[in-house]
Design a protein around this nucleic acid. Structure first.
Lengths: 339, 339
DNA sequence: CTGAAAGCGCTTACAG
DNA sequence: CTGAAAGCGCTTACAG
């Protein structure tokens, strides 16, 4: 009835050799240790037969490595993060790592708790879309030499590798595009985690508006747990500011909520109001009219993040010396029917 | 320079007491072991000061438990699974568990590998949306007493707890609805993992068609890695079968691809063709015209899955006796403008 | 009330 | 070429 999994000891006993030898063979050090091919064969055969699986905990305890990478995003059910997570998952498995994940829901305490969990679990590295306020905790982990790569949001020029998208420029291009199309009163509905003056997407918008001598209409919205709240807020903005002829949404879920608001008010896009959203997704592409977007290079973001992390993981000495760098990727404006 | 995390031994030495006592206190067994409040206070204070975190690997090695739950879905970037994952993640953390996840991409080998990984890692339990072909492997794990809950797809009446949705009935209602609206040639575009005769959604469709003496048009599509393939397939179906006046898509991504196909062919919904899709999402709700759907009770699915698993986890003796049960939840037909 | 000790399964320096 | 032994950090039966 004992269904205990076979240990390295069981193997050794069965074959009447020491577990050292078994361990060497199973870890591919047979050559290095010049163990006879015959013995190697015997051990491997027996391991297969018994269905031997090394206990990761024992190994982790001994080596201090776990082959687990912690992935922390704002919300795994947000298509942007879900897509990134999928690609990361894929690449990471190819390299023998596993992913353990969590959603911060933009709650700093939650984020901190998870960071703690990552530490306790002994993850080898972390990929984090941080919330404001996690700065100190992350810095502390980095200081301890834990490989960490940030993405989506960044902190000041702290010593953490970060993969970003050029939000300012992306937003600038969106505004410029609307201006070129002849829209006069272009609003920006933006999530403001931090102060609006510090949000790159808002900064990009303001710069374009100033450069082209237009009037600025910024509507910063706080982060909300429920989607319907956004719909209502945007409906209100739209109905209270009739002269707006174009509106930009700073994230995909704001864009989705915005579309719903526009529909509820029975406004026609782009006749009554032109629409551009940050982030692309199925809805924007298939919607009638199709929605113009500032698309983030999802694939590239994911790949850059992973490559950066793997490089750090593989090279623990260099990682301490190498200065942290921020890699900034470009967005692309995809013009469709809504603008 | 030694940044090693403090161990229970460090604590014990520092306070000049045995690590047994420290362990008892830190595990809340102080009362039970009748350790003096004074000592408890001292230990807790010191633990806090040193920032003590128990090493999960040592603990896992010792206790055989890991507080990790493995979550396996078809594709984490699919909104259906992403939403479920999010809710599961949430509930599970509340109970002190962590989630480690992976996407099978409907590849049995991949699924098997991950199952293996779950075992090796020593997860306490698994939540799996299985692919065909994982049957034996899952049965083996269940036989070993590993708590497992399946969802989304099921196997014959094997001894594994499963949370399902009443796919037959959901599809039946969709067909019935279209018939009542007066549509005559109602097609079903369905994913067929298994033989079409064994797919519940197809069975439900056929039953309704037979009951109402209509003509059956089933187009089974194999699982594909790329989305564009579906769009093309559906375009082809639509243009080769002009007499179809209504079409049902059996999953959300088929529905999305279907919409794109309909758009490309410049067909008007519902005038040229009525559309109903399985699974609800933002796109279907916001699309113009809004798409009627057979919605799965996502929240309820996630909750039932988790509750079932937690019950098994908490009660390891009973779990062996309790017969495996399949819980079937109802879908709801949401009629919108497309039908 | 508290502690010494064994042992979970592994890896690895050391010895031969 | 191969093995005996220490030790990673924890929990827990056992002893007092």
């Amino acid at each position: 009835m004992q269904k205990r999994k076979p240990s390295i000891n069981d193997l050794a006993k069965k074959l009447k050799i020491s577990k050292t030898t078994v361990s060497f063979i199973l870890n591919g050090k047979a050559k290095e240790k010049r163990i006879s091919d015959e013995l190697v064969g015997k051990v491997q055969k027996e391991a297969l037969k018994l269905g031997y699986q090394p206990n990761q905990f024992a190994r982790g305890l001994r080596t201090g490595r776990t082959s687990i990478i912690g992935l922390m995003v704002e919300d795994i059910s947000n298509p942007f993060f879900a897509s990134i997570a999928k690609i990361i998952e894929d690449k990471v498995y190819l390299n023998g790592y596993k992913i353990i994940y969590c959603s911060t829901e933009n709650d700093t305490n939650r984020g901190r708790e998870f960071l703690n969990m990552f530490t306790t679990l002994g993850v080898d590295g972390c990929i984090i879309a941080p919330t404001m306020g996690m700065e100190t905790d992350i810095a502390a982990m980095v200081a301890k030499g834990k490989p960490i790569v940030l993405f989506d949001r960044k902190f000041g020029n702290k010593g953490t590798d970060t993969v970003m998208v050029d939000n300012k420029q992306g937003m600038y291009k969106a505004v410029e595009h609307l201006i070129e199309r002849g829209f006069k009163n272009i609003a920006l509905v933006a999530l403001a985690f931090d102060k609006p003056e510090k949000e790159d997407r808002i900064i990009g918008y303001r710069k374009a508006i100033t450069d082209y001598k237009m009037v600025s209409y910024v509507y910063p919205l706080p982060f909300k747990a429920n989607y319907q709240g956004y719909v209502e807020d945007i409906q209100k903005i739209l109905s209270e500011n009739k002269k707006l002829d174009a509106i930009i949404f700073s994230t995909n879920y704001l864009g989705v909520a915005g579309l719903e608001a526009v529909n509820k008010l029975n406004l026609k896009i782009p006749k009554d109001i032109a629409v551009v959203s940050f982030d692309d997704n199925d809805l924007f592409r298939i919607n009638k009219p199709a929605i113009s977007v500032v698309a983030q290079p999802i694939e590239e973001i994911a790949k850059t993040v992973i490559d950066t992390l793997l490089a750090k993981l593989q090279n623990s000495t260099a990682r301490k010396k190498a200065a942290a760098k921020t890699i900034t990727l470009s967005t692309s404006l995809i013009v469709r029917e809504s603008s």
